[in-house]
Structure formats: C-alpha cells, structure tokens
Design a binder for these strands. Structure first.
Length: 264
DNA sequence: ATGTCAAACTGAGTTTGA
C-alpha cells in the first residue's frame, strides 16, 4: 500500500498540479494539508473523477486537511484533534482505509516565536502527544502523516544556524518530536534513509529549490506493528520543480500488505 | 528586511499568513 502526504498550499489553486501528480504517482492513500478552502469549496468532483474517494475538514482561507483513497471511500473516524474544544482550526482528520488507521496532521507553523502562535503550536504538540499515546495502544496499525512544521534534526535543514530561533526548529519543538518517537513511533524516512539529506519543502523565495535550500517538514510516523512492513519511503522532489506548484513536495511510503507478506 | 504565493475583500489592489 502506497500512502502519500502532500501539503498542496491551496487545493483549488493547485488542483491541476494535484491531478497530474495523482495520475503519475498512483498512491492508494493521500493525506492533503493546507486546503485553504471551506468544506463546500472542496473539489470533490475532480477528485472523484480521478478515481478517489475523500473525506475532508476544511476552513475558510487557512488550514484544512483531507484524506483520499483510491477506488474507495475512507471511513471517517475523527475530525479535529482532541484536547481543546475551543480550537477551531482545521488541522486534523483521521480515517480508516483497508484496516490501517490514517491520521493526517497539519501542525501550526508557530512563527513568530516567542508569542501566542508559538504557544499555540506547543499546546497543539502537547495534545498530539497525548492523543498519539492513545493511538499507539490501539490494536490496529496506525500511520500519522502530514506537515508537522518541525525540522527534527540538523540533518533536516540546509543551514541549521540560520534556523536556530525559528518556530520550526526551536528546541522545544524538536524535543516534542523526539518524545513522540520515544512513545514507539517510527520516522519512516529516517528508518530507510538514516544519513541522507532529504528535504520536503523549499521556500518560494531566494530560489530555494534551485539551490536545494530545503527543509524536511513532512513526516510519517508508524505505529510499532507497521515499522517492519515499511519497504520504501521517498520524496517526489521533481514535483516541486513544476510551474505553479506548492512549496512542499509530495512524500510517500510503501507498506508491504499482509497478502504479500503471506506469499513470501 | 529581502523575496513568493493564494485567498479574501472587494471591484485591481492591498492585506494576511506562511
């Protein structure tokens, strides 16, 4: 099963890019972030025409997350991260697809830090830690994919010293990511590519993509039972080079399914 | 600060967030 994550940075402005990439990549499941569209403007017709069912959690102007499944309807299990009923930002959606629970996160950026936006990011991370601890106890395989807006280590940024005080790289945020891993989650990209420079985001400005001045912000966390099923973890870097593209590239993993494992 | 996007509010140009 091929599971992808893609921060599209505007689902309607980017629909042609999304469809082109879907056609080329043929993922089974897709987690989308930054829809930047209210629920009623989610382009479900175009996505269905491409062969995907979808569930989505939109919001006017900002944020917004969706889960797509090829040839089927994802079974929605949750909209919104638990832990704060007053949080109105659409940053979490979850669905069951082929027996795998898919959590899709779009973490707050958190800049400028310090400040209320950074406080919100830390609070969101705290809630994510609590909820991830619950998920890992479930008797089902779980993937938490998405745009974490976290640079986990110095290997994940082209010039660490320039980012020391940024909300994407602050010690508190990296520590929160480490604590998630300490719960038993596996960072899929790093499991298969321990020492490689791998980026998933390049800023639009300063020719960041041309200079490969990137960041690794989009991650897949695998529950313990899934870690050994991981066969590939890649970034579709070339998509970032397309015209009118998102500032993120799609990232994907391949999990061996039980049928394949049984046949081996 | 620079620089680049998309969406919203409006009526093409600015504001906002990233």
């Amino acid at each position: 099963m091929k599971i992808a994550s893609y921060n599209v940075n505007g689902i309607n402005g980017r629909i042609d890019i999304l469809l082109q990439w879907l056609e080329e990549s043929q993922p089974d499941v897709v987690c989308l972030q930054e829809l930047k569209a209210p629920d009623q403007k989610f382009p479900i017709k175009a996505i269905e025409a491409a062969g995907y069912g979808a569930v989505w959690h939109g919001q006017k102007s900002w944020n917004g997350v969706a889960i797509l499944a090829r040839g089927e309807e994802p079974l929605l299990t949750r909209k919104g991260l638990p832990g704060d009923p007053d949080d109105v930002q659409s940053r979490y959606i979850e669905a069951l697809v082929d027996g795998i629970l898919i959590g899709n996160v779009y973490l707050p950026n958190g800049n400028p830090s310090p400040g209320p936006k950074f406080d919100y990011k830390l609070a969101w991370l705290s809630r994510l830690q609590d909820y991830a601890a619950e998920l890992i106890e479930l008797d089902v395989p779980v993937v938490i994919a998405g745009d974490y807006n976290i640079i986990p280590t110095e290997l994940d940024v082209y010039k660490p010293e320039r980012w020391a005080d940024d909300a994407l790289f602050r010690a508190e945020v990296r520590d929160a990511f480490r604590k998630l891993l300490a719960q038993g989650w596996t960072d899929a990209i790093r499991r298969l590519h321990a020492d490689e420079r791998i980026y998933t985001f390049w800023d639009y400005i300063r020719n960041a993509y041309g200079r490969n001045a990137g960041l690794r912000l989009d991650h897949f966390l695998l529950s313990p039972g899934l870690a050994d099923d991981l066969s590939r973890a890649e970034v579709d870097t070339h998509v970032r080079g397309w015209a009118h593209t998102s500032d993120h590239a799609p990232v994907w993993i391949e999990l061996l399914d039980d049928l394949k494992k049984g046949a081996e």
